[in-house]
Write a protein that binds this DNA or RNA. Structure first.
Lengths: 142, 142
DNA sequence: CCACTTGTCCCCACTTTTCCCCACCGTTGT
DNA sequence: ACAACGGTGGGGAAAAGTGGGGACAAGTGG
């Protein structure tokens, strides 16, 4: 269970420290991939497998499904934490998420998201302004 | 589990280095063949067998099935990696996929695809433009 | 049947990148 | 105040990618 938001630095090599309290759940390996809304998603291996299997099962006869699979798997990377509990974020993913010197590591219960501070702030502002409305609209889904 | 996208050079002899992290899963031999959408597909032998059996089982009475079968098997090659972990891409397949100096080796979970950079970019552009819609449409299949 | 040409494969060497390890520093909690 | 833990930074060893030379085998023509 991942909770909380942590500001960590990306060093010159593109490494990012995972909060110590998350590490135990990630010891079996992780998959880092593009998230929606220009953030990155980090899945523990156990959570990634069922997701990957669903995508793999999409009909190969459907051109859109083929391309969708390509985007999901081509941009994903399987990693292990290094001895210091860090992950290496590939340059392509760094660019996608707009990460430079600083990054926010955000617990999302079953997975982890990684945000550039600027983009995160934009999300926060939206929620601050329209949070009540948004919650109301989602009421039917819960 | 094959993940990620790697740019590697085809040398003058038509050899292509397979990313080191993929090699272990390919040690038992591989089959290289035409993929859909003008890329090449590289299957570990263990994944190829059931696929070949499915294609073989297609009804011989159907003209499309006959042609599909020819396309799959006639251009397929079974290979082993050389000492450096490379495969030799036959000229005919190189031409089919439009490969020249550079190639992208793309993990697709259960298999590997090989793309010319130009064609891959075209796929990326489609997904950038319509990715959100496509994802939404496919959501119903997942 | 033999010589020659062509293409394949194996091996070695070089360059670049990756990753592993160690050391430092700040913060937290005792 | 001190110890321990978590985060940050960098140097060096090992591996990966690339290129080319030479041996071998197969196919072709005389």
């Amino acid at each position: 269970m991942f909770l909380g938001r942590f500001a960590h630095a990306l060093d010159a090599k593109g490494r990012l420290a995972v909060p110590a309290r998350f590490r135990e759940a990630l010891a079996e390996g992780v998959v880092l991939t593009r998230g929606i809304d220009r953030c990155l998603s980090l899945y523990p291996m156990a959570a990634w497998r069922p997701l990957a299997e669903k995508v793999s099962a999409l009909p190969i006869t459907d051109p859109d499904a083929r391309n969708f699979r390509r985007m999901v798997f081509a941009e994903a990377t399987d990693l292990d934490l290094d001895g210091q509990g860090r992950i290496l974020v590939p340059p392509e993913l760094r660019r996608y998420a707009g990460l430079e010197r600083e990054a926010l590591v955000v617990g999302m219960d079953t997975a982890i998201e990684i945000w550039s501070p600027e983009r995160w702030q934009a999300v926060e502002e939206v929620m601050e302004a329209d949070g009540a409305e948004i919650a109301q609209r989602l009421a039917s889904l819960i």
